[in-house]
Nucleic acid binder design. Structure first.
Lengths: 168, 168
DNA sequence: ATATCTGCAAATGTTTTGCACTTTT
DNA sequence: AAAAGTGCAAAACATTTGCAGATAT
């Protein structure tokens, strides 16, 4: 459990600079939030993060986590995604290359991929229309072989259980 | 005002067949919903549609519109999108070719585009990973020239007003 | 007759906010 | 001291649901 200390320092510094530039305050909760967010593996929601922090004994409210996540995203430390299930998800962005996502409609596994050709074509499309590309969101909804061939996928049970407990 | 009558008939028939196949009932509200949905220009939300129907004197509840939209999507008459602003949007799908979207982050204008090369590359990526492509969502967030050059865009006022009145 | 629908109001689940109190600057 | 942040509980928001009466098969 732990992030590369160099990355963490870089992140804390970058965030401190961001806060200074906006005349916002460097509070204990915000520093803690940076650390906790970087420790999250893969994609996480506000509640995931809050739970993880509470589990580790931090005293932060969910409201502060929400407010902090917006800030971390604005500062470029995190990237936010909308996977069309009603929950906003975040992932570390600082030391990671850009990528898009494939997500299995059955087991909800998320796989990252990069495709420079697609990126280039997106630029071309935008330019053709006289616009400027600001950002993009590409998600491929797929079915994984586990589910197709064996009607079984370890991840699915976990997911459907979560779905039932916490559906929208 | 008014859809091509041939398209409307085709849609009503297709929907009737869909309902029959699922042993669901062909109610007046559902038929009305098909007509109203096809009349909507571009992308619309559940509330847009409900308002339009009420304006035209129909007596439908918002709940029924929500239930109906799911059905229309399942039947393939409509396509649903998540443009990451917290509202689900729909558009006519029956007589329209597949396309993706470019949306201006300032004025919220939506422009459709098609790019067969991107589609092909998506297939390739998925195949490489041993998955099967089920569906995809590609949205390019752009800035339009109107806003960039003149800091003005007719559409923007409309949008920001809506934002304030109806924000999430 | 029976299964499904509808409208309504209430519930849901995520995210945001107002406010009184703390903490940074 | 002033400005901004925090936790809490309450609000906001889009969407879903339980139920009782209405409608389609």
């Amino acid at each position: 459990m732990g992030v590369d200390p160099a990355i963490l320092d870089q992140a804390l510094d970058a965030f401190a600079a961001f806060l200074r530039s906006k005349r916002l305050k460097a509070t204990e909760q915000r520093r803690t939030l940076v650390r906790a967010a970087l420790e999250q593996p893969g994609h996480f929601t506000a509640e995931n993060l809050h739970r993880a922090m509470v589990r580790e004994g931090e005293r932060v409210s969910l409201a502060t986590v929400y407010r902090g996540l917006s800030l971390l995203e604005e500062a470029g430390l995190l990237e936010g995604h909308d996977f069309a299930d009603g929950l906003r998800r975040y992932e570390r962005a600082l030391d990671r290359e850009h990528h898009d996502h494939m997500i299995c409609v059955d087991c909800r596994a998320v796989v990252e991929f990069q495709n420079p050709q697609i990126e280039r074509l997106q630029e071309a499309v935008v330019k053709e229309h006289g616009f400027a590309l600001h950002d993009h969101s590409l998600t491929l909804f797929v079915t994984c072989p586990g589910w197709r061939e064996r009607k079984a996928c370890e991840r699915r049970d976990q997911w459907t259980r979560r779905q039932r407990a916490n559906r929208r």
